[in-house]
Computed example of a mutant assay.
Amino acid sequence: MLRKIGMLAAFITAVPAVAQSSPAVRVPPEIGAAYARLGKAMMAHDANGVRAVWAEDFVVNAPNNMVLHRDEVIAAMERDFLDYRDFRKHISFVGEKPEVTVVMGYDTMVPTKGPGAGKQVMRPFTDIWTNRAGTWQLIARQATIAAAR
């Protein structure tokens, strides 16, 4: 498991300092607020804040082709492996269904540690949100590093 966590450094969502979306894309306010809560929690290394947004069964298909569960990602965050400079989320699609909302786009960031440290990285993503007991939670994420400069 330690090997998994060590490889995470540049791969997991840190949530935006700046969120941008194309003019035709409308992010539901509840999900926008959840992204904001998640961003604050990640930056503060607040595991309980992250747990409040990520569902207990949250999984991420990371760019290193590893499927990681919520507690593995939180452990990496608590070990200070997830640090980014100039993080921005660009949202290009929001698909609302009765049970889930799908958000797609790409993140740009500069990791301060791990693979790509010091270089701008573009990472396309797909996030799957669901409403459980009146609260929007992230249940799955796929992220791929597309380019590093």
Rank of each mutant, 00 (worst) to 15 (best):
V27W: 07
F93S: 08
P115F: 15
P111C: 04
I139W: 07
L82R: 11
A147E: 05
N65V: 10
G116P: 13
L2E: 04
M122R: 15
R141F: 09
P16C: 04
P63G: 15
G6M: 04
L8G: 02
W54I: 00
Q120P: 10
I5V: 12
A9W: 08
V67Q: 07
M42L: 10
P29I: 02
V94I: 08
L68Q: 11
A133E: 09
V67R: 09
A44Q: 11
D80V: 06
G134H: 09
A55L: 02
A117F: 15
G49V: 05
A140V: 03
D57C: 02
V27E: 05
G49W: 12
I91F: 05
G6C: 01
M1I: 02
R141E: 15
A36K: 11
E72H: 00
V94L: 06
D80R: 14
L8T: 07
V27I: 15
K4V: 12
N48H: 11
K113I: 11
A147F: 13
I5K: 10
D127H: 11
D127Y: 03
R132M: 05
A44F: 01
K113A: 13
R141P: 06
W54V: 00
V25T: 12
Q137R: 14
K113Y: 14
V59A: 03
G134F: 14
R26M: 02
A148G: 11
F81L: 14
P115A: 15
W136F: 10
N65L: 13
R85T: 03
E56K: 15
E96K: 12
M43D: 13
G134Y: 14
T101V: 15
E78I: 03
K113G: 13
F125L: 00
H90A: 10
G32R: 12
M104L: 10
P63Y: 04
A62W: 04
A143L: 08
P63Q: 07
Q120A: 13
V110W: 13
V59Q: 05
V103Q: 04
T13M: 00
P16Q: 06
V53W: 04
R132F: 01
D127E: 04
M43K: 15
Q137H: 05
A133G: 06
V67N: 03
M66L: 13
A33E: 10
G39L: 08
K40C: 06
G39A: 15
P63E: 01
Y84A: 10
M104K: 13
T135W: 11
V15R: 05
F11N: 08
E30M: 14
